[in-house]
Design a protein around this nucleic acid. Structure first.
Length: 199
DNA sequence: CTAACGATTCGCT
DNA sequence: GCGAATCGTTAGT
């Protein structure tokens, strides 16, 4: 399944909510030391910048960690969560509009044996990539990917001509952000209906 | 410099 | 279902 790598213009011409929905069904790929692993994006969450209490840039908080979100869309924002897990986001919107899309789950496609090895699993199961920390580990994404563009030869997203109809996109509350109060109730989580690989 | 805290996962009960 | 693991980031002293 060979697709077309999404270009910078794709990320520049779409807002964060629509990116979260439109990128469902597309293929996230890493190529590390000429070893390719990939999966279909089946679940995302939108983090809407300075007015979203769940977002790291709430209140326009710019730190060394979050500065990549203040840059151009189409770059990777990877950060360490709970000291263990690397969470992968795609920076969206314009410069100084620090928003991002968290990739929460993928359906494994290429390089499954290598993904199993990275996850220390014996055989393919939903457990391989049905969570933001899991898919990063499976694809070999770690903090060194932070700030990389998605237009290089190590990390990118492909359009594989598999658009998801809006009728097949389920929208719900985001996960694990109880600290965000009222904003925890916002319907900014999106996933593909009836897909077994969502978290 | 120090201390508290996670956009989670895993193993055990 | 529940609690521990684990460490870079952050904010405050």
């Amino acid at each position: 399944m060979q697709g077309i790598k999404l270009k910078h213009s794709y990320y520049q011409n779409i807002d964060t909510i629509n990116l979260s929905k439109n990128i469902l069904g597309k293929k996230l790929v890493t190529n590390i030391n000429n070893q390719v692993t990939s999966g279909i994006i089946v679940e995302t969450e939108a983090y809407l910048g300075i007015h979203d209490k769940a977002c790291h840039t709430f209140n326009n908080k710019s730190t060394n960690r979050t500065k990549v979100m203040y840059g151009e869309s189409g770059f990777a924002y990877v950060y360490l969560c709970y000291g263990i897990h690397s969470l992968f986001n795609i920076v969206s919107n314009d410069i100084d509009k620090p928003e991002a899309v968290l990739i929460r789950a993928i359906e494994p496609i290429d390089g499954i044996s290598l993904m199993l090895e990275r996850r220390n699993l014996k055989k393919k199961s939903y457990n391989l990539t049905n969570g933001p920390g899991k898919l990063s580990q499976a694809l070999g994404i770690n903090n060194t990917f932070n700030g990389l563009s998605l237009f290089n030869n190590n990390l990118w997203v492909e359009d594989i001509n598999n658009n998801i109809l809006s009728d097949n996109i389920i929208c719900g509350k985001r996960v694990g952000i109880n600290f965000a109060g009222e904003d925890a109730k916002l319907p900014y989580r999106f996933y593909i209906k009836n897909n077994n690989w969502v978290s």
